[in-house]
Nucleic acid binder design. Structure first.
Lengths: 136, 136
DNA sequence: CAAGACAGTGCAACTCGATTGCAAAGTTTA
DNA sequence: TAAACTTTGCAATCGAGTTGCACTGTCTTG
């Protein structure tokens, strides 16, 4: 497991107490979390402090946000070596049963054919269905 | 151009004045619209009436909704023959310059390889970038 | 080390898209 | 036609996201 402190140092983000706690919490997860879930998981921490830390993390490309259609933005720590470029894009999977949102890091996005002269700079790809734990 | 009346009849939705006006308006568009844009385009019509008509339309599979990451759900009329099944899924394109959201009907989603035992039932795929009009 | 400058935090308030309660109006049914 | 049901319009509410502001902690510079 990568250490929060190292990641902050690597990305050039000042390691405050809030940021360290938040990033450590995010690193423990096996799914993407909403702001509300972080509030609940980090009881002593203020919502807007979490929110602003998330914005910083996003700006410095430590985490990426996912719009999974639930109405709540989810956040997940970027994989090692990710620079949030086009080639780092990956599918996300939202399980409609357990309501977890996962990064499908090992299943890259096939090349997408666009209409003539359209240019892709970003994408939000969410597949919905049942995850392996719920599809039984 | 398909007629609103015919579509409502085909899908078994009672053709009220609000629904006819709304569907006609949607059929004129070359992009997916937000609730707010419909309110502006249909000045005399109440927001919650539009909202509830959209919900009915979605339920009866006349239209589909798109979560393009702008924070406003967009709606577009389904193509002829669409049953909102997996095979009717398509990419959407959000142009960050003109802020239009398009259905890419002619560019089908390639088959997506999922982790073992994951089952796909739906998807929200949004590509962001510049459309042909803005990419000059 | 001290003073000022700056960044980060916590609280409360606010924004805005989405949604709902309710009564009036319209439509269908018996 | 009257009762039952559906649709509509208005106003109120909800909730995620965001921001203003004062306080605190940290850094910089003399």
């Amino acid at each position: 497991m990568r250490k929060a402190e190292d990641i902050l140092a690597l990305k050039g983000v000042k390691p405050t107490a809030v940021r360290l706690n938040l990033l450590e919490f995010l690193l423990e997860q096996d799914k993407a979390l909403s702001l509300k879930e972080m509030e609940i998981g980090l009881l002593h921490m203020d919502r807007s402090s979490i929110f602003r830390s998330l914005k910083s993390f996003e700006e410095y490309k430590l985490i990426h946000s996912i719009n999974d259609g639930t109405g709540m933005t989810k956040y997940a720590v970027c994989a090692e070596g990710c620079n949030c470029e086009l080639e780092d894009l990956h599918y996300h999977f939202y399980c409609t049963s357990c309501e977890k949102t996962f990064c499908l890091m090992d299943h890259p996005i096939p090349s997408i054919i666009l209409p003539k002269n359209f240019k892709m700079t970003d994408a939000n790809m969410v597949i919905k269905g049942l995850c392996d734990q719920c599809n039984k």
